[in-house]
Write a protein that binds this DNA or RNA. Structure first.
Length: 597
RNA sequence: GGAGCUGUGGUGUAGUGGUUAACAUGCCGGCCUGUCAAGCCGGAGACCGCGGGUUCAAGUCCCGUCAGCUCCGCCA
């Protein structure tokens, strides 16, 4: 840089700086060459400032500026001057001043970038990911990463203040049964043995409680080898916490305050406390989801009782065989065409709904292919249940509870989007509590932990653990924001006998339990305090606060849906020598690379 | 494992089975002393993701495949 030292950031200059000699370093956003006068918008992380090159102030710089192109890296020595009257740019924070250049150094040249370095670009995500360093130059990406930093800093400041210690846990750990697929790391010095990357530091943080650390937190990377979604990456970051001597309300109120602090420092928002709470059952009944979006209405109604005795076989048999008949009122959609309804039916079928029954509410009564199966009394009850008015479209699903909830829950969100019912800039936090402890897995023909196997049952349900496992409620809680789960936790089991019962309930033999979690059971015998905690999905939280639709936008170097990094080409093939050292042979002859095509 | 959408100059798009694949922007050159979506003039740049097939003729129709995205399953 030829001994030059930067004095200011580009975006920081204001009329107060007029008269100052400044040295700026940054990238060329745009050059406007007027022949006798050249304007260059110089950009750094802080913003843009207009640099003026004129032969009157420096003939040499003016000549050099003619050869400057977009994304060249410049060092500019100049003087801050007020803009001539009438040439101010109110769209720019620095728009009332210019920097007149007296000395220009071209620190580096740049090829023409493959896409525009600006906000709101509409470009193939392939390109953005391949040239991520250019994508990240865009102001909105830089602001998002700054917001992520503010979030993390707010968490650290808050938890430090509350007496938490930030403690690290291993990345190379052991694979555990249950849960997601593990990422495995072969051990060179232990042939045939593997570490697993942590799906979460769950066991370690509990052990830290046994160790008397009292309050722990960690901003920690977690790994799950499952298929990707807009809000799921194979590696993601959790704000992970655990506290001793607490109950559900303690964890909830402590983290509520933290969330408020995050919102305030990241985006200047002050959500009202306490956040609403909903039981799992109520969330399912009203919204068909355990992570309901409460920014709009369209709640579900249950008509299983009416359906049970009606003449429509599809309804009555669903209701009679333990299923549900539920409906949703698509307000004002009575004018939907046959095709519109077919589309909604197709949408519901994604969630395994076998069909979508409908009522169109008109002044003359209900128009529906299935109206004839209902008496006037029954129709009246249904209309009342769904709060139906003339011009409404009522949609019904009759199926197993799982399918009815899923299909209508998704339909509810789908309709809200289509009808533009979702207000912008609304942040609806809410707790979902009282989850079932266990969930029956049809495929495996056994109960599995809904949260994880270390979640404590509610005391009053303890007796059901053996007699009626499906109805045991957990001391678990999820934090939901605008229909997305951003956090979840529980009070843990801290007694060996209960932990053993839990393992038994999910089908572990005592030998398996000891084999996989013996150290944990043993630790429980050395004075384990009651404890509980929570983990937040940092990426999702920042995504929502930043108003983005995918966590890829808040992760500097994300993976594609096929878990590849388009910039580095990971995962890539490795030298056979490396494999040999690791005592590994693969079945694949010619590995596909991520960059083909 | 499955369903859907997308793929055409650098970028974003248009393109009814039929001539030399069109437009905008960017890029390159020239002119231009107050622009900030600068302006004006000129120029280069795509064998239409890849591979087959149908056809006298394919960017367009069919099959396969690759990549990206969205979703179902999966994600304690």
């Amino acid at each position: 840089m030829g001994g030059l030292k930067r004095t200011h950031m580009c975006g920081a200059l204001r009329p107060e700086n007029v008269g100052q000699r400044v040295v700026l370093m940054g990238w060329v956003q745009k050059r406007r060459d007027h022949g006798g006068l050249i304007f260059v918008d110089l950009r750094d992380r802080s913003g843009l400032v207009q640099v003026v090159f004129s032969p009157d102030s420096s003939a040499e710089s003016f000549a050099k500026a003619g050869g400057v192109r977009n994304e060249y890296v410049l060092a500019v020595e100049g003087k801050v001057v007020p803009r001539p009257e009438g040439t101010e740019n109110s769209a720019l924070p620095t728009g009332r001043i210019d920097v007149i250049c007296y000395g220009l150094r071209i620190l580096n040249r740049a090829k023409t970038p493959p896409f525009y370095i600006e906000d709101g670009i509409d470009v193939d995500e392939n390109l953005r990911l391949r040239y991520r360093y250019l994508d990240l130059r865009r102001p909105e990406m830089q602001l998002t990463l700054e917001m992520r930093h503010r979030t993390v800093k707010a968490v650290r400041d808050y938890l430090d203040q509350k007496g938490f210690l930030e403690i690290e846990t291993p990345m190379l750990t052991s694979s555990t049964p249950e849960g997601a697929r593990d990422y495995l790391v072969p051990s060179r010095v232990n042939p045939g043995r593997f570490y697993a990357l942590p799906q979460s530091p769950q066991l370690f943080k509990q052990i830290l409680m046994v160790a008397g650390m009292d309050r722990y937190f960690q901003i920690v990377r977690c790994f799950r080898d499952e298929d990707l979604r807009a809000d799921r990456q194979p590696e993601f970051t959790q704000i992970d916490m655990e506290l001793s001597f607490v109950d559900v309300d303690d964890v909830i109120s402590l983290t509520e305050e933290m969330v408020v602090r995050i919102c305030s420092e990241a985006i200047g928002l002050k959500p009202e406390l306490p956040f609403p709470r909903l039981s799992y059952q109520e969330a399912m009944d009203r919204y068909g989801s355990d992570k309901p979006d409460t920014r709009f209405g369209l709640e579900l109604a249950d008509i299983s009782d009416v359906a049970l005795n009606c003449g429509f076989k599809v309804f009555s048999s669903a209701a009679a065989s333990g299923g549900l008949v539920k409906g949703i009122n698509a307000k004002g959609c009575g004018g939907f065409s046959r095709k519109d309804i077919d589309d909604l039916t197709a949408f519901a079928s994604i969630y395994k709904a076998k069909g979508l029954a409908y009522f169109i509410v008109t002044a003359e009564g209900v128009k529906s292919p299935i109206a004839k199966f209902f008496g006037p009394q029954e129709i009246d009850t249904i209309l009342t249940r769904l709060d139906a008015r003339e011009g409404d479209l009522l949609l019904f699903v009759a199926d197993s509870p799982g399918v009815a909830y899923a299909a209508l829950g998704a339909l509810r969100v789908h309709l809200a989007e289509r009808l533009n019912l979702i207000p912008e800039n609304l942040f609806n936090f809410l707790w979902v509590t009282d989850f079932p402890l266990l969930d029956y897995d049809q495929e495996e023909q056994r109960f599995v932990a809904m949260h994880h196997p270390f979640t404590s049952p509610r005391e009053e349900d303890l007796g059901l653990l053996e007699s009626d496992p499906g109805n045991v409620r957990a001391r678990a809680y999820d934090l939901v924001l605008n229909g997305i789960e951003v956090g979840g936790g529980s009070i843990r089991i801290h007694r060996r006998d209960i932990q053993e019962k839990m393992f038994k309930a999910i089908g572990f033999t005592p030998e398996e339990a000891v084999d996989k979690f013996g150290y944990m059971l043993e630790a429980f015998e050395y004075g384990t305090p009651p404890h509980g905690g929570i983990a937040f999905g940092l990426d999702r939280l920042v995504m929502l606060l930043a108003g983005r639709k995918t966590i890829r936008d808040v992760i500097p170097f994300p993976k594609t849906q096929s878990a590849a990094c388009l910039m580095t080409g990971a995962p890539g093939p490795v030298d056979p020598v490396q494999l040999k050292e690791l005592h590994i042979r693969t079945e694949v002859k010619q590995p596909r690379t991520a960059k083909q095509g």
